[in-house]
Design a protein around this nucleic acid. Structure first.
Lengths: 398, 398
DNA sequence: CACATTAGTTCATGTCTCGGACTATATGAT
DNA sequence: ATCATATAGTCCGAGACATGAACTAATGTG
């Protein structure tokens, strides 16, 4: 039922099949050409030709033939770990981060700079980020990894490479893609931190559903604000104006107090870090964790209360989006031991008979977004290797 | 980023381009071959070949050449009104309905049988529906319209042609596609009424956004229950288990009373027809409308109260899904004059700064779902004409 | 050592779209 | 009238690509 907008041509056919083959290799490596042919429906001869293109582009590697039951042993195909790499960057309220990931998704460089960025000039923070990016890029080069591009995670709304606004950082209309692109010479993308965290969790979090990686879930990221990333069919759901998934501003208390966003009774207002800390009468998240571990009742009540509000918001999410799982990330992952019981109870109290999705806890913590950012860069190559080949060819001739 | 699962072959290329051309003709008829070529990016020669296939399949018609500015006049291409037709059926709590739609979307037969189906045996109701379908099919035949298939709208959860459950009708595990298929000899699909109503509204409701048809919106259908249809990018959003969009069970009062679904404080429990009628102290929806027209304060308060609750639910929908518009359908369309002010105020009270989507009122009323059902059948042909050609060819030789 | 079995390559074939040449049919200027 | 120009649509050779069958390669089994 999809509306087709582009003519199908021979080049597109090849591009599509290259992606099909590379995707199969990425999912199930090591595999043989014959297995790829059987699983994709392409013929052996087609697969041979496609694979040979991918090998000469450096995206796929042959490794030692593995003996099979009988017959000629299969030559194993793997993603080339040195083929392409992606640079993930993150600007957040209290840290900057950079990660370089190779084609297989393995992190090859990782650096975090903790510093509160709220009071600072935008230009200063951007300059720091570019420094960080350059250092990461040098590391990639010294490891022989050609960077295909970069992606920056920011805690706010982004449209086409620009930061539209980041409520908790106070930025507005910042052309981050332009600045970082100029500073590094890379093609740069900018994307919401919650969405990237969701993708990072999907690709690298190790969660499974019925033996396959999660593809339909909602990721809740509890940083200073509360964000949400909706993933449907393995892709981020952005809505009409890229504003979808703002879980922090779902109404959980219709008669509640005014929130910073201008609404009333939003989840972030009722269960954000500020509210939890105030109720628990502690100063920092670290202090809150200690208090919970010590069994402090005020702290436990504060977290459980937040868990109940979170459950109300998630009940609406479940009703509207019907995901297979909910993943709790960021601060909610840290607080999970004292939070999930209240959240699960609240979800079930508000959803009734519907089969509830699984409530999972993030394994990546605050790294999810940067890793997701780096992942999007290499995934883009995997999803459209033909575009990558074309760029390579252009560089070779031009 | 889409995961490709099928090999691209020459046949698929042709199928894709047939769909591209037919889709262009459907959207902008009348058009010439040259215009189609310019707009799709295909060459004139390719378009000629594709069009000639579509004409011999009876999906496209040539009409009289229209004189242009200068040069050879263009022969106009249109969807063939007699090419294919779709049968839309609807089982609802208090009526059955059938519509036959031709390729252009024009309704060519329409019949509604009002009767309360709640107490009745499932088999009886299904038998009535099959009767209705047969009569509609005879009418199509006598008009020379070959039916390509049928689609049944039901007020509940459906999976692969079967009705899983319809809370307000009391059905569970009914193989409706099988029964109607056997009774009519057609290929039958079964789909949620709210989703089909949303599609009907999109295709036939005449709404526009920036000059183009709506493609990202949420349709609220207020029948006996409250349903929701989420349309993103022109397609229904179903979630992981086809349960998405259940707007009626979004939480609007976390401490509210228990709802029939087992949850608490659901929109349907707080603002459904039963609740409104009780508060307004009238017996029927017709009575409610009269009371509102007469200025009865209890009725007006009841409707405004429902509007406020609806606004809370829609605020969460807007925050999570970021649609361009909300369309109020069914009973909410009828009550719109006394409802929308409270709803709009409640939305803005609970969403704050976010640019609010437009609040539209359905033009189709309770016909939206059947028309959407008939529409899906013909749209399927338009979206994949190659499959239709293959079926035609199979019938001709077999 | 012959034979079965599986992996991967080669090449002729068929099916597409493309692009340019060609035909058809109009308007407007000379 | 006649010619230039412009636009619509067809025809046909060239090129790209997947297919499928035949072929080569490399292993284990009786």
């Amino acid at each position: 039922m999809t509306v087709r907008t582009e003519p199908a041509q021979h080049a597109g056919m090849r591009a599509s099949n290259l992606a099909l083959v590379l995707g199969e290799v990425a999912r199930t490596s090591p595999v043989s050409r014959a297995q790829v042919a059987a699983r994709t429906g392409l013929t052996k001869s087609s697969v041979s030709g496609l694979v040979s293109d991918l090998i000469s582009a450096g995206l796929i590697q042959e490794s030692a033939p593995a003996a099979t039951e009988r017959g000629r042993p299969a030559t194993a195909l793997n993603l080339a770990p040195g083929g392409v790499a992606g640079l993930g960057l993150e600007v957040n309220v209290d840290y900057l981060a950079a990660v370089v990931t190779d084609l297989t998704g393995m992190p090859r460089y990782h650096h975090v700079v903790r510093r509160d960025n709220r009071g600072r000039e935008v230009d200063e923070v951007v300059a720091d980020l570019i420094d960080l990016a350059r250092t990461a890029a040098r590391s990639a080069t010294s490891q022989g990894l050609p960077l295909s591009g970069a992606c920056v995670a920011v805690p706010g709304l982004t449209v086409e490479g620009a930061v539209v606004r980041t409520p908790n950082l106070g930025w507005a209309r910042v052309d981050l893609a332009g600045a970082v692109g100029e500073g590094t010479g890379l093609e740069v993308d900018v994307e919401n931190e919650a969405n990237l965290a969701a993708l990072g969790e999907m690709w690298f979090g190790g969660h499974e559903h019925d033996g396959a990686p999660l593809r339909d879930f909602v990721h809740v990221s509890g940083e200073i604000g509360i964000g949400g990333g909706i993933v449907i069919g393995g892709e981020v759901f952005r809505g009409a104006h890229a504003g979808a998934g703002e879980l922090g501003h779902v109404v959980v208390a219709p008669d509640g107090p005014r929130c910073g966003c201008g609404g009333h009774g939003c989840l972030e207002r009722m269960a954000g870090q500020q509210e939890i800390l105030a109720r628990a009468q502690v100063e920092t998240m670290a202090g809150l964790t200690r208090a919970c571990e010590a069994g402090d009742q005020a702290a436990l009540d504060a977290v459980a209360g937040a868990g109940r509000h979170l459950g109300v918001a998630l009940a609406s999410v479940i009703t509207l989006l019907d995901p297979t799982a909910i993943v709790l990330g960021g601060a909610f992952a840290t607080l999970a031991p004292w939070l999930t019981k209240a959240t699960a109870a609240s979800i079930s109290h508000h959803t009734g008979a519907v089969e509830p999705p699984r409530l999972l806890v993030s394994g990546l913590g605050s790294d999810a977004a940067v890793r997701g950012a780096a992942g999007t860069v290499v995934r883009r190559v995997i999803a459209d290797p033909a575009a990558h080949l074309a760029r390579q060819a252009a560089r070779a001739t031009g």
